[in-house]
């Protein structure tokens, strides 16, 4: 509870800064609207206003600044507008009994969440399997690790359309699978790196101890390396699930998808409805926050059960 005050202070500062930024960002739009309504603005012509800085426009047209806070298509919507749009496309639709309508962010969030979870599962399995192979085989360590690092240097935006084209070539219907693959592609790497570090965390003395018991390799893995890697794994999973969500959204962007939060962002951009973009952005951020928090709770419960001070 003692943390509440500083958190709220920072939040208030961000919101205040945001509200302050709305005025210069939207002054041109506000003056355009005012001009069309026949008001007197300085200068009167849109072209002439284009050559002036926003600060000068605000100075000369102070009475129209409030108009910038209530535009239909603002350059920068206010937090209130974003909140209202978010409510309109989630809570309100749920209250009207149509949470899974095509215009509801709950529906689009659900589409994105599904691919994210599939990608997360796939990426986690691949990352853990790769880590085990790397830790137990020198050859794999030297051959696989460089590729894993290179894979993360390729921009995912360039790769995503290719994955979609290629998966449709091999007869995979729909966008669920390619989206999950793109998501897994971003997610496996932190899991791999964290898990390698975790599996290698037991010291030489710990491994010698097991040797004095003539323990088998499998016993050493199950009784020492795997439990020792748990704190590392959870840290990686939290990064991994956020990456999986980003991967899914990127997978929804350039591919002509019509559902999912990524598609909402792209469509909002094409139709010039910034409120829709911002609402989808916030929905994605909230989704990521919920997923990471859930993992955090699972981590605490697991580590506490294992007796470690979490």
């Amino acid at each position: 509870m003692r943390a509440a005050l500083p958190i709220l202070t920072v939040l208030a500062a961000i919101v205040a800064l945001w509200y302050a930024a709305v005025a210069p960002m939207n002054i041109r739009g506000a003056l355009d609207v005012a001009e069309r309504a026949g008001e007197d603005v300085v200068p009167a012509e849109s072209r002439a206003r284009f050559d002036q800085s926003v600060w000068r426009l605000m100075l000369n047209n102070a009475e129209y600044i409030p108009l910038g806070y209530a535009l239909d298509r603002p350059r920068l919507p206010t937090p209130g507008q974003v909140g209202a749009e978010l409510w309109k496309t989630t809570g309100e639709m749920a209250l009207r009994g149509r949470p899974m309508s095509k215009r509801s962010l709950i529906y689009h969030g659900w589409i994105t969440l599904q691919s994210t979870l599939w990608g997360f599962a796939l990426g986690t399995v691949l990352g853990m399997a790769g880590a085990i192979a790397i830790v137990y085989s020198r050859v794999v360590n030297m051959s696989l690790m460089p590729w894993a690092i290179i894979s993360q240097t390729v921009p995912i935006v360039a790769l995503a359309p290719m994955i979609i084209v290629l998966s449709s070539q091999v007869g995979i219907e729909g966008r669920g699978v390619p989206k999950a693959i793109i998501s897994a592609y971003l997610c496996y790497f932190p899991v791999l790196v964290g898990m390698v570090k975790g599996l290698r965390s037991p010291g030489a003395a710990q491994l010698d101890l097991l040797k004095t018991y003539s323990a088998s390799g499998l016993q050493a893995f199950l009784k020492l390396r795997l439990p020792a890697s748990m704190p590392y794994l959870f840290t990686s999973l939290k990064i991994g699930i956020a990456a999986a969500l980003v991967g899914t959204i990127v997978g929804e962007l350039p591919t002509g998808a019509i559902s999912g939060l990524g598609a909402r962002i792209l469509i909002g951009d094409q139709f010039g409805t910034p409120l829709a973009i911002w609402a989808a952005l916030f929905a994605a951020a909230i989704l990521a926050g919920v997923l990471v928090t859930l993992l955090d709770l699972i981590q605490r419960a697991t580590l506490r059960r294992m007796g470690m001070q979490a």
Binding site: Q206, D208, L209, L210, Y213, Q219, A228, M306, G307, M308
Partner: peptide, 25 residues
């Protein structure tokens, strides 16, 4: 039985379970 300079107990096991480790193996 070998005793190392560092106790090297597993932090995720109770003392009982640590002693059980060689017995399990």
């Amino acid at each position: 039985g070998y005793v190392f300079q560092a106790a090297g107990l597993y932090p995720w096991r109770t003392i009982e379970k640590n002693i059980a480790l060689p017995l399990e193996i």
